[in-house]
Design a protein around this nucleic acid. Structure first.
Length: 272
DNA sequence: ATGCCGTATGATATACGA
């Protein structure tokens, strides 16, 4: 059985319906994981996704800001929402897919402007959030766990995850303290960075380009903020992973591109 | 490398993104 998941920071789900149709036609994913849906649950376009075949959903949103959702053609069990740092701000949903695969969808706080937790509460929140995530997964750590973690983690960890490493090392998303916090998260369950598994580390790779740039594609001043990780038990199942860069330009535009992973589960657990 | 852009809101200013 093949499993294809697309994760996307949509910057308002209601503006991307046309783009979802294109993604389904082009890539035929089983599951969408969305961040920054920016809509309360009652107004979520459930019916649109149901008509596309995504009838299993876990939606956790609010007015204006943040919001996450999982939309699946495959049954979801044990659907859960989890609050972090004592805030009900809609940044994490997870559920179990057939075959016992636990799928986690995260929207890590952006962190504001100033990369100093002493003066910027948003940055302090971001670091606290990542520390709590690492602690939580460390407690769950087990070599048999088959987990997928996707989302907008709002950190570009490697030199070639940003357009200019030297100029961005004091810019939120690429500071050493954030990169260290993301490293702790990665090590908390020995996660495999699925996208970098297929794109060599010496090659530039981005998933976000600012709206502000005159010509985002030509300037290509991007950062890799969106990630797909799997636990070691799923490492051998990884078949492909990529950033769907072309979708960054589909109007109306999100400033993030979707990321996609394909797993081949045939050899692992048999039929589900 | 910020916010020149974009989204959302009982909204013609403000909060947030990163």
């Amino acid at each position: 059985m093949s499993l294809r998941v697309i994760s996307w920071n949509v910057n308002s789900v209601r503006l991307r319906l046309r783009a979802f149709r294109r993604l389904v036609n082009r890539y035929d994913p089983h599951v969408f994981c969305l961040q920054e849906t920016r809509v309360e649950n009652a107004s979520f376009p459930y019916e649109f996704f149901r008509r596309l075949g995504f009838e299993y959903t876990i939606v956790h949103g609010q007015k204006m800001h943040y919001g996450v959702a999982i939309l699946s053609k495959l049954p979801l069990s044990d659907s859960r929402i989890k609050n972090w740092c004592g805030r009900p701000d809609c940044r994490h949903v997870f559920a179990t897919l057939p075959g016992g695969i636990e799928l986690h969808n995260f929207y890590v706080p952006a962190g504001g402007d100033v990369p100093d937790p002493q003066v910027n509460p948003k940055f302090a929140h971001k670091l606290k959030f990542m520390t709590a995530m690492a602690r939580w997964f460390r407690r769950k750590r087990n070599p048999e766990n088959r987990y997928i973690l996707v989302g907008d983690l709002n950190v570009a960890p490697h030199e070639n995850d940003v357009w200019d490493h030297k100029r961005l090392r004091r810019v939120v998303t690429h500071t050493p303290v954030e990169i260290e916090a993301l490293g702790k998260m990665l090590r908390s369950h020995d996660w495999v960075d699925a996208v970098r598994r297929f794109v060599p580390e010496d090659k530039k790779l981005f998933s976000w380009w600012s709206y502000r740039a005159e010509n985002w594609k030509a300037a290509d001043k991007g950062r890799r903020l969106d990630h797909i990780w799997v636990t070691p038990a799923l490492g051998d199942s990884l078949k492909a992973a990529e950033v769907l860069k072309r979708a960054r330009g589909w109007r109306p535009e999100s400033d993030h591109a979707p990321v996609m992973v394909t797993l081949d589960l045939a050899s692992q657990s048999g039929p589900t």
